[in-house]
Amino acid sequence: MNAAADLPLPVAIVISACLLAGAGLALTGAIGFVRMATFYQRVHAPTLGSSLGMVLILASSILYFSVQRGALVFHEILIAVFLTLTTPISLMLVVRAALSRDRHEGDLSVPPVERT
C-alpha cells in the first residue's frame, strides 16, 4: 500500500469505513444464508451483499482511486448498474425454477398454480 501514503487522513477514514461496512454486509448475508431454515428464506440473505454491500465497496474504490490519481475515476459505477439490473433477473429465474420444482413434487407449503 505504498501508493496510499499521501492520502489525507479524513479521506482514508471515510474509505475504510465504507469498505468495512460493505464487507460486513456481505459477510452478514453469508451468515444469514447459512442460518436460514428454508430455501425461500435463504434466497433473501445474499441480496445484502449485492445491494448495499456492493454499492459501499464500489464507492470506497471510486473515492480511493479518485483521490489517489487526483482525477475522477468512476468506471466502477458500471458494475453497480450492471449488478442492479441483473440480480433481479437471476434471482427471479432461480426462485421460479425452485417453485416449479416444489409444485411438481406436490409440496403444499408453496402457492399452487393459478389456472387461467
Binding site: 500500500m1 505504498n2 496510499a4 479521506v11 482514508a12 475504510s16
Partner: peptide, 9 residues
Amino acid sequence: MSATLLGAA
C-alpha cells in the same frame, strides 16, 4: 498513518 489504516481496513 493513513496508509496503515487503509491497509488494515
